[in-house]
Nucleic acid binder design. Structure first.
Lengths: 91, 91
DNA sequence: TTCATATATTCAAATATTTCGATGTGTATT
DNA sequence: AATACACATCGAAATATTTGAATATATGAA
């Protein structure tokens, strides 16, 4: 994982709304529906859409279309790679 | 560690210049001098000062005055706490 | 096909970040 | 004391981010 990718993931994580989205996966088992994120955040629908896009663009979330709904999966592989980069800072 | 703190650390990490500073600790043994950071980055001194401030404000670096020089230590405790928060997203 | 629902996109305003030149502050050297 | 050095702060310009209103697109239901 190069530094541009680390930068992008860090930026995706640098917003409490987006952190709250990721933490919601702890309560939900596997996936999170777009509508659930709209309920979770105190923001309009376009703003929520914007935040979800940041997380998807950083590959932290994987979107899946389901009829006219969207659901998101947490990309643990990318999260683990990011964590490994942070751990490597410590020698 | 609350979400505001996670946001702040993530933001501190969301810049390739600051990532490069942290990675420089891998080459250096224990601490990094301000002058070394000035040499490392292709930026003016005020810009470097700004980036170091972001890292210090996020508690990722601990500044130590040494005469008229400044040296920085990596705060592994905070880095570990941050990594623990990220790991907890996966449960 | 028509209508309603779910989500994305566009646009603009407000705010935040990055950068650098100029300057300030503190410390060592002479 | 005068000067030089190391770093911080200020001010302004350029750019990026966040937000919401308006609108577009895609899908399912009637």
């Amino acid at each position: 994982m190069d530094n541009k990718k680390i930068e992008k993931i860090s930026r995706a994580l640098s917003d409490t709304n987006r952190i709250a989205i990721l933490q919601e996966f702890k309560k939900k088992k596997d996936c999170l529906y777009c509508a659930e994120v709209n309920d979770l955040l105190d923001l309009t629908q376009p703003s929520v859409s914007h935040h979800l896009k940041q997380l998807v663009d950083a590959d932290l979330l994987v979107p899946q279309k389901e009829g006219r709904n969207f659901k998101y999966l947490l990309n643990e592989t990318v999260l683990n790679e990011y964590i490994a980069c942070l751990n490597s800072l410590k020698d």
